[in-house]
Design a protein around this nucleic acid. Structure first.
Length: 271
DNA sequence: ATGATCTCCTGAGCGC
DNA sequence: TGCGCTCAGGAGATCA
């Protein structure tokens, strides 16, 4: 599922290919996606050029020439792929943008947990109002993490998944970051020892950067905008490795369920 | 106010 | 072969 490194990999791939292109056609098949209807009909993108590609957390923000913003969230199974006209379409394709270089950019999302919204020129994006600092933002420092931790009584795993505190970390990287820091996912955030704050910060950034370097995690058949798979799943220490030995201490990796989601960790060296 | 649980949705995997 | 079941999870809504 796309988390920060996957969305950033896609953003980088799109940045080179899409910036400056004009959107000549908008084939929108409005399906019921998450997040309610788009404030502006997506057809209004026709004739606009792509000015910039930004990202906040797992949201992709496409700035257009008239200063409107096209917001994309890939949810669990959303895909953005370049295609040639006439090329076979994936099932559950909800949007096809025709570009002025004769290519298409297609969005498909079988589970429809994704989101497509167009905001008019100069309009803010309310979906991001309550979002926390992006995990790759320079403002996300160890000190900032310490402040956030002190304000939360949630288990560390739930804390890391809470996008209103820190944006971009999902299930894979939450598990990996906690393993790297040697912290139990069950520990209450505000009980994190002072000496463990910097290691947790380093664990989060390390997992995200390592994944970016590998082109993201290919899991649930994630691919980037040109269909490339990422290879970070080869490097994970604990995620989906229940019963396997911990790479650090050899103890058996355990799977538990927290807030309805799988958590993988090593009970021996994560305290 | 905070944290836990439910909900949306489809496809994959599994046992029989 | 196919049926029914469980599971996957981002994030908003709802509940305790």
């Amino acid at each position: 599922m796309p988390e920060l490194p996957e969305v950033e990999t896609i953003r980088r791939g799109l940045e080179g290919e899409l910036t400056g292109r004009r959107i000549d056609g908008v084939d929108w098949r409005p399906a019921k996606l998450r997040g309610g209807p788009s404030p502006r009909p997506l057809m209004e993108m026709e004739g606009k050029r792509v000015r910039e590609l930004r990202r906040h957390g797992k949201f992709l923000l496409i700035g257009l020439s008239d200063r409107s913003t096209f917001v994309i969230h890939l949810g669990m199974t959303g895909k953005l792929l370049f295609a040639e006209p006439g090329e076979d379409e994936r099932d559950h394709t909800h949007l096809v943008l025709g570009l002025d270089d004769e290519r298409q950019l297609r969005f498909s999302d079988p589970r429809r947990f994704g989101l497509l919204k167009l905001f008019g020129p100069g309009k803010p994006v309310p979906d991001l109002d309550h979002y926390g600092v992006d995990a790759l933002d320079p403002a996300f420092t160890p000190a900032a993490l310490g402040t956030l931790l002190a304000g939360s009584g949630a288990p560390l795993k739930a804390f890391l998944l809470d996008q209103t505190k820190l944006a971009g970390v999902g299930n894979i990287y939450a598990c990996e970051a906690l393993w790297r820091a040697g912290l139990s996912p069950r520990r209450k955030a505000r009980t994190t020892p002072k000496a463990k704050v910097a290691p947790l910060h380093a664990g989060i950034l390390g997992a995200l950067h390592d994944s970016l370097a590998a082109g993201g995690s290919s899991f649930n058949d994630y691919v980037d905008a040109i269909g490339q798979e990422g290879s970070f799943m080869m490097e994970v220490a604990v995620f989906q490795r229940e019963g396997e030995p911990c790479p650090r201490c050899g103890g058996a990796i355990r799977r538990i369920v927290q807030s309805g989601r799988s958590t993988f960790y090593c009970p021996t060296c994560q305290r």
